[in-house]
Design a protein around this nucleic acid. Structure first.
Length: 412
DNA sequence: CCACCTTTGAAGATG
DNA sequence: CATCTTCAAAGGTGG
């Protein structure tokens, strides 16, 4: 049974209150109410593990209440229902018994509960050969996979059949140029970044249009040089060449727990259903997600936490805001790739404070770079901006391996 | 060709 | 602080 290895036992101790999910269906939601509460504890504790000063609310207090998006999503669903001609056709897989996939972790994951590779996976020589030490122990679900960084050549030892359910669509986190200099030998080939061509964001506007207007403009200006900084979005033919270059520069968000779960479970669901439509698959996956025990979910929360941790290490200055198209138009300048930051695994990244956007707009192209090197920001950025950088209270537990590897990598 | 759909969660933006 | 918005994946669908 996959368990989070929280030897410290302070956070996931909630597992003592484990509630067995024997079935699913209409009753499930009611049971989930209490179970969600427990899971909330797990989730919040996962956060607290890294946040030195945690607030008691966050996920735990928000979760039980209807999510903000639920209404709109409900409307969307309703729209879909109407469009499809009536009630949401209950998928034949709705409430699909989760026990049909017993022991997910053992079946699909070569990783131990603490995120370390199992013996079999370790010996499969597939991952670590070309993988950065940072990620060598991480779950294959993690996006920082060797193929994500894969150059045309492939590792001779890399075998997708190593008992690992690898998604062929592993997301790609391009290594930031700023991070490269510190990446040791194993990823030395990544240093070949001939296509890197910093592109400057236009001078920020002095007046701020209404956000809605901004968003509208954004959609109209998707082809602008600025928006091409997000090349995964649509690109016109004339921009495709540059878009291809930018593809390597786009740093995607780390996957959250549900995304990791989806990536692992989607092939199974697709295999069992004949349906391939992702929207339908995702609905099934969403229901199955809720039918997971909190322990099983905790596994993915932990993986997601490791993802974020690794992501923050690889891209210290990266912010999710960097991928906000509207924010780019609004004048936000990302530290990537224009602003090269050394990858320091021991020092906190010095990312522009969150108020940069507005500040930049009102004060003109002030100096995002001034925050990077010498002068630390007057005010420390909000804690939420770097929620997972702080080491857990007990570093030797679950991701101790990660921490150690990261530290090792940081050493000469 | 490309936006949309659909899910949950994280994080930034906004009021 | 509470709420809203965006983006992560994915692949069929429809304009």
């Amino acid at each position: 049974m996959p368990q989070l290895s929280r030897e410290d036992g302070d956070d996931l101790g909630a597992s003592d209150e484990l509630i067995a999910f024997k079935d699913e269906g209409e009753q499930e939601e009611k049971r989930n109410v209490s179970a969600e509460r427990d899971l909330d504890d797990v989730k919040s504790s996962l956060v607290n593990e890294s946040e030195t000063n945690s607030s008691s609310d966050s996920e735990a207090d928000r979760r039980p209440e209807p999510r903000p998006g639920v209404v709109s999503r409900g409307r969307q669903t309703l729209r879909k229902q109407q469009r499809d001609g009536g009630v949401l056709q209950p998928s034949p897989y709705v409430g699909y018994p989760f026990f049909m996939f017993p022991d997910l972790g053992n079946l699909c994951s070569p990783y131990l509960a603490n995120g370390a590779l199992t013996a079999g996976a370790r010996t499969s020589s597939s991952v670590p050969i070309v993988q950065h030490p940072h990620v060598s122990h991480l779950h294959p679900l993690l996006s920082y996979s060797p193929e994500a960084f894969s150059p045309p050549r492939t590792s001779p030892g890399f075998s997708p059949e190593a008992g690992v359910s690898r998604s062929p669509h592993a997301s790609c986190y391009p290594v930031s140029p700023g991070a490269m200099p510190q990446i040791p030998h194993p990823l030395g080939w990544l240093l070949v970044s001939s296509s890197f061509s910093p592109r400057l964001v236009p001078t920020p506007q002095l007046s701020v249009p209404h956000p809605a207007i901004v968003r509208t403009r954004v959609k109209q200006e998707l082809h602008s040089p600025v928006s091409r900084l997000c090349p995964h979005r649509k690109a016109t033919p004339e921009t495709k060449r540059e878009g291809d270059e930018d593809k390597k520069l786009h740093i995607k968000k780390p996957l959250n727990a549900f995304m990791l779960y989806m990536r692992e479970e989607r092939p199974k669901v697709v295999a069992m259903c004949k349906v391939k439509e992702s929207s339908s698959i995702n609905q099934i996956l969403g229901q199955r997600w809720h039918s997971l025990t909190k322990d099983e979910q905790a596994k993915y929360y932990e993986l997601a936490r490791q993802e974020r941790l690794l992501h923050s290490k690889l891209y210290p200055g990266w912010s999710a805001r960097d991928n906000y198209v509207s924010m780019k138009v609004a004048g936000h300048t990302s530290p990537y790739p224009e602003q090269l930051q050394p990858l320091s695994l021991t020092t906190k990244p010095q990312r522009p404070p969150l108020s940069l956007n507005r500040a930049t707009i009102t004060t003109g192209p002030s100096t995002p770079s001034s925050n990077t090197a010498s002068s630390p920001p007057q005010r420390p950025p909000p804690l939420r901006s770097q929620p997972f950088l702080a080491p857990p209270p007990t570093s030797s537990s679950s991701h101790g391996a990660l921490t150690q590897q990261l530290r090792r990598t940081n050493q000469p």
